[in-house]
Design a protein around this nucleic acid. Structure first.
Lengths: 362, 362
DNA sequence: TGAGAAATTGACAGCGTTGTCTGAATGGCT
DNA sequence: AGCCATTCAGACAACGCTGTCAATTTCTCA
């Protein structure tokens, strides 16, 4: 790389050095067809020699790509957001794209103003939506009108208009609940998440399905409303555990709230999991750090970010071609039930099991 | 806002509608001097009516601002990265800027290539560096050469060349260690963090200072090397607690590693904090979720992000003016020692204290 | 061998802003 | 009244790239 230039090299400098037209340089940079080997090498050599990097502003102004995608989120909770972003970045790196992040207050009245500014100022090539923004109609409308490809992560419902990435939250909740049922639990408390997250109702619905299928009555007294945070779950846990007929198990809608349940249980002198089984959801790093380590569902968040990016880049690749022929793709990633130490047989049954074991031992 | 346009409105459209020149529109948008009230309102009305948003690519191509800043990091650990970004975003929002994030592998050989691409392609107005990237010389050199304002968060040393934001890590470690000493601990294990984080040596150095000042010998056997992760600290904790003369307290260089110590201690049947006192560092949300809740240092991460952004925006404001007159600003934010349940009097002393109490009670 | 198709390169006009320069109007001062 | 400084508005040329179109060469197949 030759130094000494005080000005950043432009495509013109490269063209001059390689003794070709700027258009040819542009062709090589963009990997267009119809350039001979000879030209390619000549141009590449000049590019390397000058340390040339095409100016993104100019490219986006002249062409119709900005090499920018954005992650819109409304709830920077825990590691979720950064895991999604890690996934997106992995793919961006491979494709020479850059990632912009924007937190938008979904409850604010100027959300239309803000999102519209964001999308019109920058000429975003694509957008990824998570958490409460996923289902925000205003943002969706703005994106639709601006015709910006976007992927919704964990949407309420799959829509034909936009692709999505998710896991089968309902099914995972069913399986997790069945695990508790199989351990003999019948009185199971449930702590819901934030009402504006699609996952909240999906997880609860899965819980209900499993309970009904098992013929176990769902007691509305054992349903608590949290907001996916530790703090929000503390009073929920207190109420559930203060009852004379306290549940033998609690299904917290995410790991953070499960951590709160553990803390409250320990505080009240319960021995875990003997006196109370607890399950979480997401398998955040915290899940294995808790004691007892948490039985939960592995939520492949980073992979979901990668999948979302894959969908976007695939869309970019076939841009301009038959647009509305194929319906929007919907990817459903595999989850996994992770059994750890926070769940065990229900108290009553535990006694019975012990008796049986003793009998057998004789 | 009038709909129906299939093309995004440009400055020309605004100029035509307001019946002024595009330059005047530009002046109003940028808040330049020499525009009459009358003109201002006329232009603003037209802008509102068309729903005009100036195109960032064009602005950055024509002018010398991109309205983009980037966060470069090399270690997306836990909530640290997202907290920094939350702080940056808070300020970006106020100033109409956007935030780009880029994870760079500091150990990779193409780091120069990657950072240089990043900085030349996009015309970044400023950059914020955290964690291992803060002290990476290659990145610093590239930034310096490109004359891009940048702020280093938690640097090894304050440099005249670039501003920085930090807390007094050494002093905080001193205080935290003194807390342990005051509880009677003398045999204190220490688990270091990753070697490429400046905080690692600073925290250890603070620990050593406090020990020396108290006239307590530092046993090299009680020094373990972790990497700021839970997993890395597990074997460290095992080694420390397997000793016959195990320490009565352990100073883990961050909360995550402290969590590992707690887990190992519990696993080995120790009662906390009676048998072992543990301190962490950072006061991540996890610290209060652990049991026992962790004594630690509150690290104002989000505020540090905000402070970094403030420094950048201040630099933008006085761009072009007397450049090198004032030295680079260095902000040192306040920390706080948070006492929770993971620390108590050292075992031997505990017995003595008990005896005293009993005596008094008679 | 010739005609049409395909491959290869270049000239040049934008893309939507801001910077520079020029011109006109206004104001204050002798 | 005359002159200079200041305020205000517009014309026009960049900024660095890509898209379009035209020109030239090379290939393909009858």
């Amino acid at each position: 790389m030759t130094e000494g230039m005080d000005r950043k090299p432009t495509i013109t400098d490269v063209a001059r050095l390689a003794n070709v037209s700027i258009k040819t340089v542009s062709r090589v940079i963009n990997g267009e067809r119809y350039v001979t080997e000879d030209m390619q090498t000549r141009v590449r050599k000049a590019v390397a020699e000058l340390g040339f990097h095409p100016n993104l502003s100019a490219r986006s102004l002249a062409g119709d790509r900005s090499f920018l995608i954005a992650h819109l989120y409304g709830d920077p909770s825990g590691t979720y957001t950064s895991d999604i972003q890690a996934g997106l970045l992995n793919r961006c790196r491979e494709h020479g794209y850059h990632l912009l992040i924007e937190e938008i207050d979904y409850s604010s009245p100027d959300i239309e103003q803000r999102s519209s500014t964001l999308l019109h100022q920058l000429r975003l090539d694509g957008v990824v939506l998570t958490a409460p923004v996923t289902d925000n109609e205003i943002v969706q409308r703005v994106l639709e009108r601006a015709r910006i490809p976007h992927v919704r992560i964990t949407p309420q419902r799959e829509s034909d208009a936009s692709p999505s990435v998710r896991i089968d939250e309902r099914e995972a909740a069913v399986k997790l609940t069945q695990h508790l049922l199989s351990l003999g639990h019948r009185r199971i408390g449930f702590i819901k998440g934030s009402p504006n997250h699609a996952a909240t109702e999906l997880r609860y619905s899965g819980f209900c399905t499993a309970m009904e299928e098992a013929g176990v009555e769902i007691e509305s007294d054992l349903l608590e409303k949290g907001r996916f945070t530790y703090a929000s779950a503390v009073p929920c846990a207190r109420r559930l555990l203060a009852r004379d007929d306290r549940p033998t198990a609690i299904f917290a809608s995410n790991d953070e709230m499960a951590a709160a349940v553990i803390a409250v249980a320990v505080e009240q002198g319960l021995t875990l999991p003997r006196d109370l089984s607890i399950v979480g959801f997401d398998d955040t790093p915290m899940a294995q750090m808790l004691s007892p380590a948490l039985t939960t569902v592995r939520h492949p968040v980073r992979e979901m970010g990668e999948a979302a990016a894959d969908i976007l880049f695939a869309a970019f690749a076939q841009r301009g071609q038959a647009a509305s022929t194929s319906p929007a793709p919907h990817r459903v990633l595999p989850y996994e039930i992770i059994l750890r130490q926070s769940t065990s047989v229900a108290p009553a049954q535990a006694a019975a099991a012990k008796k049986a074991a003793t009998k057998k031992a004789r």
